[in-house]
Nucleic acid binder design. Structure first.
Lengths: 209, 209
DNA sequence: CGTTCAGTTGAAGGCATTCAACGTCGGTGG
DNA sequence: CCACCGACGTTGAATGCCTTCAACTGAACG
């Protein structure tokens, strides 16, 4: 009833239109939800981190591709078992609604980013989101070393930019002393206030979380 | 337990952060869900048409503004009554999940539009969406007269463009004979195939719905 | 040591924006 | 009745941000 599957970086987990014969939760790793136009332009419409969930009650298919970014481990459940569990347990059903609403809020925040933010604001917002996520996941030091799980190309596809623009904006934040990279995939936020200001969002009274 | 409220065009229905003391369904009219940055840049993250629903089980507040675009009539229910109805009726609960998932899919489609489509593709996709919606609502003639419920500014805020660009692209589609306007707010699609092609989406085998 | 691929950097170009002016329509009041 | 006004929409010209194209760097790997 419960099985584990692992995927290597870059490996497709599910294709658009695939039958969802199981539901799953991400044990470890990062995956993307992506949509593509005829001519190859791609937009990442969501990220999956540890403990995130794949599967939609009552839906057989998905309308996007799911791809492993890092090594990903999934914990999979047979769909019928899951459906009946949801149907019979109001508490679980409640949880499913909340998850869908959370994702909806996240998607709408991202719509604001994609439609109205500048390249610099997009990058700052993205970095800020990574900080929040990894803070939740337990990295809590004053200026902890964070990981950048995506390549420049994936970041570009998540933010509606090109790789070159992503590279330039990250370099610019480095030069300004807002970020510090030890390695291409690990960094620290040296100036959280400046980062928050660069997001373009409400300043939240200057409070730094 | 059930009350009706009407709003005039432009009137705010709910502000971001407002307590949701009731849930409601749209009886008639069109409303927008909008998000705004500090400096006034605005992004419309969703539209409400007839029979759409306002309210999120388990959530007290909303994170966006809801504004009447046309005259809007809402049918409002007290929140506690609704919550207990959802909790006690699995069928209703199921419906709520499906609505949330539908909105999520729509939001993700729009993310692809905002992040990766050109101005022309955005306008074509928007018009195509209006056609689909009004088709569902009963306008089914071969080339029915459709209404454009939003102003140019609202369209711009929905598509992540400026009013000028919206105007130019609509004019261009008119000149090409794809659209025909009788009045600034009513139009017909003269060339559905060309419209579909202009959306940039998969051609769906050339089938025109 | 050569190859490859992710990332960076520079220069040129283009699409959408910005700025500005004009046109159109509906409502209001003289 | 019509002149005036304001909101909405259109059109033109110039600017700019991001993209495109191209070349280069550097680390990983056989």
């Amino acid at each position: 009833m419960k099985t584990y599957r692992t995927y290597t970086p870059g490996e497709p987990i599910l294709w658009r239109g695939d039958k969802l014969n199981y539901v799953a939760s991400v044990v470890q790793g990062v995956a993307t939800l992506g949509k593509t136009l005829e001519d190859g332009r791609t937009q990442i419409v969501g990220l999956l981190f540890g403990s995130d969930f794949i599967g939609r009650p009552g839906r057989e298919e998905i309308d996007f591709d799911i791809t492993a970014v890092t090594e990903v481990t999934l914990c999979c459940f047979q769909r019928p078992a899951f459906e009946s569990l949801v149907a019979s347990t109001p508490h679980i059903s409640e949880q499913v609604v909340q998850m869908a609403l959370d994702e909806l809020d996240a998607a709408r925040d991202w719509m604001l980013l994609l439609g109205r933010k500048t390249a610099r604001e997009k990058i700052a917002t993205f970095i800020d989101m990574l900080v929040q996520r990894q803070h939740i996941e337990g990295l809590r030091g004053p200026k902890p070393k964070l990981s950048l799980p995506l390549t420049r190309e994936e970041i570009a596809n998540y933010l509606g930019l090109t790789v070159e623009t992503v590279s330039r904006q990250i370099t610019s934040l480095k030069k300004e002393g807002v970020l510090e990279f030890s390695d291409r995939r690990s960094f620290r936020v040296k100036d959280m206030r400046a980062l928050k200001e660069a997001t373009g969002d409400d300043s939240e009274g200057g409070l730094i979380i």
